[in-house]
Design a protein around this nucleic acid. Sequence first.
DNA 1: GCTAACTAGTTTCAATTCCAATTATACTTT
DNA 2: AAAGTATAATTGGAATTGAAACTAGTTAGC
Lengths: 159, 159
Amino acid sequence: MQPTIPLAKFLPYQLSITSNAVSGRIAQEYRQHFGLSVPEWRVMAVLGDSGALTQRELTQRTLMDKVAVNRACKVLEERGLAARTPNAQDGRSHHLGLTDSGRTMHGQIMPLAQEMERRVFAGFSPDEISQFRALLERVRAQVGELDSDTIDSDNFGVG
Amino acid sequence: MQPTIPLAKFLPYQLSITSNAVSGRIAQEYRQHFGLSVPEWRVMAVLGDSGALTQRELTQRTLMDKVAVNRACKVLEERGLAARTPNAQDGRSHHLGLTDSGRTMHGQIMPLAQEMERRVFAGFSPDEISQFRALLERVRAQVGELDSDTIDSDNFGVG
DNA sequence: GCTAACTAGTTTCAATTCCAATTATACTTT
DNA sequence: AAAGTATAATTGGAATTGAAACTAGTTAGC
């Protein structure tokens, strides 16, 4: 006989509410300061870091849905923060890069990102931060593994 | 001059994608095995753990939106997994509790939850798990603190 | 070099989520 | 006890999201 787990002790739940709290707070900052959504911010961050990319590359680097990437790109283009230039190697895609105004905003965005990170993890030692990072990475890898097979109905894999 | 942070090293981003991966995997299991959404599952988990509650109490305990709670409750009621009984103390609300069939499902659900938790955190030592838990909790508390004040436009709080 | 299969990007549609308004009941003040 | 305020639950509508369909261009096999 197993004891019941209160929801609050369930790690995936704790992970979820913590992530939502952090994401929500950060989304609020970006909206207030720059009028950017999270997908838009992520695309800006990657473009500023890597130079011009295709949407496909952006999808890979941000781990976002290609529709989300496409919509973010459209908005950034409409706002004049990014621009498309033809891709000589592949007529289906374009290279998307930051404009001057996009680069200017990127220069303001990254300090805010760093400040948010600093605040959220204030009171953590460098060791704790790198441990946290490592744990997250391992969890993610583990879920990737799991994704291939499914838990058996009868015994829930406890066998 | 600050170095740029690649998105992949940005902790809130790592937290977000890890949480999404875990939530997605778990949602898939609940859908497959029980036809339950995550909000529905959470309500079931809390009801099974605490006995009958009002929607207000469910909202507090699950940290979900009251609309999400309401709709989850409606679905559970329609499926005969939960039932409402009048609340003598307050005519506006009802006590929502699991039915026999709900309790039966709860009995199957919790082992699946534990198995998922075990799998996602397979390879973690008990120490690492409790450290992870503690880190999540501290992050969440920290964000709660932050929520009261806002970062100043001019200096991003670095001042 | 033509056809078939594939891929990048876009659009559409349906589901979900989130906010705001509504309803019904409860409290509070006079 | 009447009027006004507050709160639990619900509903409706707007915005967001994701899956699948669609378009245009590319690659591979013959």
